[in-house]
Design a protein around this nucleic acid. Sequence first.
DNA 1: GTCGAGACTTGGAAGAATGTTC
DNA 2: GAACATTCTTCCAAGTCTCGAC
Length: 425
Amino acid sequence: EHPKMGKVKGVIAPENLSMNCALDACPPKCPLPGHAWQSVCHKEETTWLAFYRDTINGEFKYIFLSAGSSLKGQSDREKFEKARELGKVVGNIRKKITSGLRSSTSVTMQQNTALWFIDLLAIRAGNEKDTAEEADTVGCCSLRVEHITLGRDEEGPTIMFNFLGKDSIEYKNTLKLRPDDEDKALELEDNPQISFVRHGEEENFAQVFKNMERLVRKSDNGKAKKPTDDVFDELTTSTLNQYLKELMPGLTAKVFRTFNASFTLDQELYKLEDHPRKKEFMKTDTTQLKFYNDANYQVAILCNHSRAVSKTFDTQMEKMDGKKDEIVKELNAAKKSLKEKGADKEKIKKKITQLEERIHKHETQKEIKQKLAGVALGTSKLNYLDPRITVAWCKKFGDFALSKVFNKTLQTKFKWAIDEADENF
DNA sequence: GTCGAGACTTGGAAGAATGTTC
DNA sequence: GAACATTCTTCCAAGTCTCGAC
């Protein structure tokens, strides 16, 4: 429960607003007669147009340019360029993390263990929070002992995470080794609450597990930890980001999330290139869009982007089941009539094929609906996926219409990417 | 090194607009 | 064209991160 729940916001008057405009520009006129702006300033190094103080907690509230403005586009591009830069050096950074995991210096070991999670699981940095004023949510650096369960299964060690992240969204995930039995691995792969250790990272995982055993049991002074104690007790987001800057200029924890989200999309989309079912996927716009959405889905799972399940979800499922029953009845009747004397067999056979196709389509639709019930695809598309990857993929594979994946708002927001990327991006 | 102000990005909910089905 | 489903858009809270003061 949020500590400020139930508080009423005050009205924001012109007297609460500070305006920002160029020194040689005419400040906007206050539209309310008898009122005036609190102040007019000329901060050329900032992008905000106006700000006021929140009436509940006194925090700054800004008014910015829209996402479609060239200024925002430029900043968006810089964000993705930074992620691409990380992509070029991530191999070396992972080598440094590998050695840091085994460090005898506690701070170094903690920094690299946290980073290993941030890189693999795309967990947020986790700044300090004042739980008397804000909801009790955590990220990597602020994880507490009570959020972690260490265990073992037939493949080896397991690390289970269970905590509330941004917006009090539940994060439940068990990290484990990929089973040798490929059928079992494929089955577990479909479970969004299970993540496999990256290929080649098995030894590092064993070390991370050892580190975590130590971090959830004892602090550096040897005292036993309580469930409410911090796992990474010598770490803050600030010191972690300072360390990251030593590894690459401008690198922060957030960049790993952008990089891994875009990298995942790129990998998933380009599986189409030599996919055995390539023709089938590229047959219609609907099947190609489904392929794109499946790739987008993998990113949404990685970033834990969820949404409330529609209140009418169960009714909708029941309706779909009812609809399917109707088609099945029709199909059975058609099959029966095939055996009747004097029936137009060719016509009935054609009808049977059509009905079978309808059932298959219906089942696929239900499957998609169930899969996406609690998952939000839009957040990653808007914030984490380099739009140039999507633009290039659309151009490369059958000149697929970009409007199928980017609506009007996204096309405006990503104009810079549409102009820039060709099929070889 | 710590703290807090300041500036910006990321995020889901809700309502509006649009599409689909009967 | 009504009813319902889906997608788009807006809203603003909740994050991340930097920088300067102490």
